[in-house]
Amino acid sequence: MQSPVIEVNNLSKHYRVPVREAGLKAATKSLFKRKYNTVKAVESISFKIDPGEVVGFLGPNGAGKTTTLKMLSGLLFPTTGTSMVLGYQPSRRQAEFLGQITLVMGNRSQMSWDLPALDSFELQRAIYGIPRPEFEKTRDEYIELLEVKELVRKPVRNLSLGERMKVEIIVALLHRPKVLFLDEPTIGLDVTMQRRIRLFVEEYNHRTGATVLLTSHYMADVEALCKRVIVIHNGKLLFDGDLAALLERFSAFKTICVTLANGNGSFSHYGEVLNQDAGHFTLRIPREKTPDITARILAEQKVEDLTVEDPPIEDIIEKVFSQKSVEA
């Protein structure tokens, strides 16, 4: 049995934040007596991730996702608890550890703004001490995979957001890290560019067997890449398991879309009709009744087309966030 690449035990991060009311009086008062609040950004979370896994780390804004990634990448010291990544304690920030991981933040750049990305790649080679033949092979491979041959010769400031993100990904992966922490890597990108980045991460995972922990507000990223998801909310872990199990557990209904050959029909006796328009019907059916209802519709109606779908994953995740109990 393989030992986990990432192991987190009761990890917490609390911040002590000064607070005061608005106005001059409160400001003066705070000079003599300061009040502090303790913000529990992450509260006693535990999980393990095996080598090669791609795990979606989900939660609303302020849930503690980025704080957790920062603790796992050695940027932040945890308040309590322990974590091990690749057998290293991240907070010790050993060079051997940092040389084997990467953290990509969708809104942060590692590149020189004024120079072509090729120059930033060269600096990255020197930082990580990558042997030149290996560096050139990796660089050219990534350039081809992401189709950025022309872009890497332009100053970074002249690239669009999507183009810049592609070269950011290259710069972050040149040293072939074994663990990828991806924090909103597709934020602000159009669907085509999101897909391209997603495919690249998938390809990287297949080729190198790297472990990926990904946060994203785009559920398409999660559905495409992650078999397993970890959901946190208010710093606490709400769910850790297969994405399919999450859908099963939190989605009580399925949606059946029917198109009739003759355009007329009545569906209210099958279940709740969500939409009805020129021979197209959308029904909401309890999950356990879906096989029966589908069979009945096919037998009783002149069906031209029929599809059974899970509700949008966004709706399910929202439902998970509303759960209060800690599940694992």
């Binding site: 920062k70 050695g74 940027l75 991981i101 953290l103 933040m105 942060r108 930082i127």
Partner: peptide, 10 residues
């Protein structure tokens, strides 16, 4: 936030 990215380097 540039320090965060620089701290990721070995």
């Amino acid at each position: 936030g540039r320090l965060s990215m620089e701290l990721m380097r070995p």
